[in-house]
Amino acid sequence: MANNYIGLFDVIGPIMVGPSSSHTSGAATIAWMARQIFSGKPEKVTFTLYGSFAETYKGHGTDRALIGGILGFKSDDVRIRRAYAEARKNWIAVDFVVDKDTYVSHPNTVDVFMTGEDGHTLLIRGESVGGGRVRIRRLNDIEVDFTGEYSTMIIGHKDKTGTVAYITKCLAEDEVNVATLKLFREGKGLKAFTVVETDSSISDDLIERIMKYKTVASVDLIQV
């Protein structure tokens, strides 16, 4: 299926908790993806809101949608309405920072900064680009670009020769067809993320095999 295919249910849909496809549905999806990428349960989450998100987030329920996403609620889950209470029940501390000054390239931008029980952290920047569609634009300090519309594997590794070749070898062994594969890095020889979008789902065994490779530090998955 082509990436720009507009189908019947793209037009008659999504089914979503209101009031706004960009400010509510998209926000929930960004946070949901952030939770999928984060290993383990976050103990504390700070959301930094930019642009239009910073201006009107309360009236659009953007805050509740973001918290809901962190709790694993998808954008049509009515529990988003009582996300604050659900977060308390799950012992996740949430905090919002409104930043109206920093320039961002897209008006609906949010940074999700998660701290785990073991102290590890992850920063994810997401953009809600309209109609509930989203893009992830940053992982920690590295600029990335993927949508989560496919099964997506995010591999954190050192930028070293052979890593990507090893990853593609593992994918080929499992007959997983790659839709896109992109490498994003801090710089030559430094930290990098390889983001693989695939047509079929990815098995735990495949993740384990990739994890074994000497330069690989983390493998996280967004399954659609």
């Binding site: 008659i12 999504p14 089914i15 908790v17 209101g18 009031p19 706004s20 549905s25 009515v78």
Partner: peptide, 21 residues
Amino acid sequence: ETNASMGVIVAAPTAGSAGVL
């Protein structure tokens, strides 16, 4: 109203115009 109070709606084609269809 359902949309504006965070109820579940079908965006058709958008959330803002979800009442028409």
